[in-house]
Simulated scan of single mutants.
Amino acid sequence: MPLHQYIQALTHLPAHMYSYIKYLKEVNGMSNGQLQMLQTPTPEEGFDLAIRLAQKGVEVTQPSEEIRQMLRPVYSRNVDSLIATSQVIAIHFQTIAAANNYWRAWTPHYG
């Protein structure tokens, strides 16, 4: 799945989340402004991408580094916050895994 299709799926989010595209470009090192694919060579690299996407989501939600640093001691010890963080990463990884056909070799669909 191309990254721009993933972004289009996010269009139901509030207006402030549209800057998420900018951060996704940064995550993928897109200096030329083109959207890259969600495809990665390995599941490990896919998981790393999922983590970076989640981190960038936090930066979009709270752009102030100072405030994020102030809040970190609170949420880093809160089990509900940690579970929610894991869920966000898992959702991103699920999308990336599907975009990569779960890293299986391609086989034709007979149906």
Rank of each mutant, 00 (worst) to 15 (best):
M30N: 08
L24V: 00
K56I: 00
A99S: 15
Q94M: 02
I83T: 02
T107H: 15
I83W: 06
D48T: 07
L13G: 00
P41M: 12
I21T: 10
W106H: 14
L3T: 04
I83V: 04
A97P: 06
V60G: 04
R77S: 07
V88K: 08
I91K: 14
T85K: 14
V60L: 09
T95K: 10
L13I: 03
Q62Y: 04
T107M: 15
N78M: 14
P41L: 08
L35Y: 05
V27Q: 04
M30S: 15
H109Y: 12
L71V: 08
I7V: 06
P73A: 10
H92I: 06
T42D: 01
Q39C: 10
P63V: 02
V88L: 15
E26P: 00
F93D: 02
V60A: 07
R52K: 15
P43M: 06
E59G: 00
Q62D: 02
R68C: 06
F47V: 02
V58G: 04
H92G: 07
M1E: 01
L3Y: 02
A105M: 12
A9P: 01
P43Q: 10
Y20G: 04
R72Q: 14
Q39H: 13
A97Y: 10
W106M: 11
Q5D: 11
A90I: 01
F93Y: 15
E44G: 05
G29W: 13
I83L: 08
K56Y: 11
F47D: 00
M17N: 05
N100R: 04
R77W: 03
P73N: 09
V27I: 04
V88P: 00
A98G: 00
H92T: 04
H109G: 01
D80E: 14
Q94K: 12
E66F: 09
W103L: 03
W103R: 06
M70Q: 11
Q55N: 12
A99W: 04
L53H: 13
H109P: 01
W103D: 03
A90Q: 11
V60T: 03
A90N: 08
F93V: 01
I51Q: 11
Y110P: 00
G33N: 12
E59L: 10
T42L: 06
Q8T: 02
L3Q: 14
G33V: 00
A15S: 09
K25S: 08
P63T: 03
G111C: 07
Q55D: 13
T40D: 04
